[in-house]
């Protein structure tokens, strides 16, 4: 199977301190990969290094290689702006801009200089439909995105990422700030997205990982302990630590 992103022996340091100890992980195309693990296990840090959001934190160094479509994303030649257009990100807290829904969704397209009103309208509709929030927003496109509920805001944020048509979508605990109903809507959205996109999702919620992901990777203290097809891992984990975590012995 084709991999979209491949990390090889990737180590990350905050100053002197090594936070990720040599991660080898690949994300297969059109599959959902869940990154599991207790707080502080490095799963979010790893996710954020896949589109170089860790660049924003001073004193972060990364060794090893992270390849996206065969290109090392940490090579000096890599254009971070283009990388982030192709590897989109959805954050833990819904973070729509304080603009209208329409302006939120077209933000990425406007950056690319798209001005054609018809194309913009079309992309807004497509993206909001894909993110399963079109019915709630179609009559309120000119209203502030902040006037919607948390779950709707998060789906608007997903639509905002989809509008630029990335190859891969990184989701950093996208449902942990939401109520169960909104969460399940977002899970449905993710299953739909799988047809066109490759998804990596960090989650605290093991049931969520079991419901939606095809592959699971278990992180502990900056190490990648085990990576497996999700069903395989949940039924019959190889490592004892994974089994303990899945059985709720810690975490």
């Amino acid at each position: 199977m084709e991999n979209v992103i491949t990390a090889e022996n990737m180590r990350l340091y905050y100053g002197e301190k090594e936070a990720l100890h040599g991660i080898n992980l690949a994300f297969p195309k059109n599959q959902i990969t869940a990154l599991l693990g207790p707080s502080g296990s490095g799963k979010s840090t790893f996710l954020r290094s896949l589109n170089r959001m860790n660049d924003l934190i001073p004193d972060v160094t990364i060794t090893g290689s992270v390849k996206f479509e065969g290109q090392d994303i940490y090579s000096p030649k890599m254009d971070v702006v283009n990388l982030r257009k192709r590897v989109g990100m959805v954050f833990q807290q819904p973070n729509p801009f304080p603009f209208s829904v329409y302006d939120n969704v077209i933000y990425g397209l406007k950056l690319e200089g798209v001005k054609d009103k018809k194309l913009l309208d079309q992309r807004v509709e497509e993206s909001l439909k894909q993110a399963a929030v079109w019915d709630e927003t179609k009559d309120h496109l000119k209203e502030s995105a902040l006037s919607f509920s948390g779950g709707q805001q998060q789906r608007i944020c997903i639509a905002r990422v989809l509008a630029v048509q990335p190859d891969m979508i990184l989701m950093d605990e996208p449902t942990s700030a939401l109520d169960p109903v909104s969460s399940s809507k977002i899970e449905d959205t993710m299953l739909e997205l799988k047809n066109d996109y490759t998804v990596a999702i960090v989650t605290h919620n093991m049931q969520q990982a079991a419901r939606i992901s095809d592959y699971s990777a278990f992180f502990l203290n900056g190490d990648l302990i085990e990576t497996e097809a999700t069903q395989q891992m949940f039924v019959n984990p190889v490592q004892e630590q994974t089994s303990d975590f899945l059985n709720g012995k810690f975490g």
């Binding site: 959001m53 702006v81 990388l83 973070n95 801009f97 933000y107 950056l111 944020c157 905002r160």
Partner: peptide
């Protein structure tokens, strides 16, 4: 202005 507006924008490929 919250930091997450800036993050959201950068993550969408803005300079």
């Amino acid at each position: 202005v919250p930091r997450f507006y800036r993050e959201a924008s950068l993550a969408l490929g803005a300079t």
